[in-house]
Amino acid sequence: MNEATRLPNPGTGLTGPNYARRSRVEPTVDALGKGRWVATDESGWGGDQLAANPDRYMTIGSVAIDDQTAQQVLLDLRRDARITDQVAEVKFKHFKDRPTGRQALIEALGPGGSLEGRTSVYVIDKHYFVVGKIIDLLIETQAHSRGVEMYRNGAARQSARTLFEEGPRALGRDGFGKLVQATVDFASMRNRDGRQSSVENFFDVLEAAWAKSTRRRVTTVLAQARGTRAEAADFLQALQEGDLSDSLEPLIPGVAAVVNNWSERIGKVNALTDDQKVLTDDWLDKMIRQFDGGGSWELRWVLGRAQVGQMLRGESKTHPSLQLADLVAGAGFAVAKRFGGSDSPAAAELYPAVVPLIDPNSMVAFDDMSRFARPLG
Rank of each mutant, 00 (worst) to 15 (best):
F339S: 11
Q224E: 15
Q71W: 12
A208G: 01
R78T: 10
M1S: 15
E249F: 01
L248R: 02
E200P: 12
T273A: 12
G101M: 04
V130E: 02
R21V: 11
A209E: 02
A211C: 12
P111L: 13
L239Y: 00
A156N: 08
H127N: 14
K133R: 11
R169C: 08
P320N: 05
Q181N: 13
K337W: 11
D174C: 11
T40E: 09
D292P: 11
I288A: 15
R22Q: 14
G16I: 07
L350V: 05
Q181P: 07
D204A: 13
P250T: 00
A256G: 06
D66K: 00
F372G: 02
P250N: 02
D275C: 05
D292E: 15
K96H: 13
N361G: 14
S362A: 03
L284M: 09
V180P: 00
T280G: 08
P111V: 13
R152N: 10
R56N: 09
L312C: 11
W37L: 01
T220Y: 11
L239V: 05
Q276V: 07
L236P: 04
R265V: 13
A160P: 05
S198V: 03
A211N: 15
M311Q: 12
E26D: 13
G177N: 03
G110K: 05
A81E: 04
L376P: 12
D30K: 03
V205G: 01
G267Q: 03
R79D: 14
L236E: 08
D281T: 05
I358F: 01
K133E: 10
V269W: 04
L244H: 12
P320V: 00
G35C: 08
L284A: 02
Q323L: 00
A51N: 10
G11H: 04
Q237E: 13
R6S: 15
R169D: 11
E140T: 10
S188F: 09
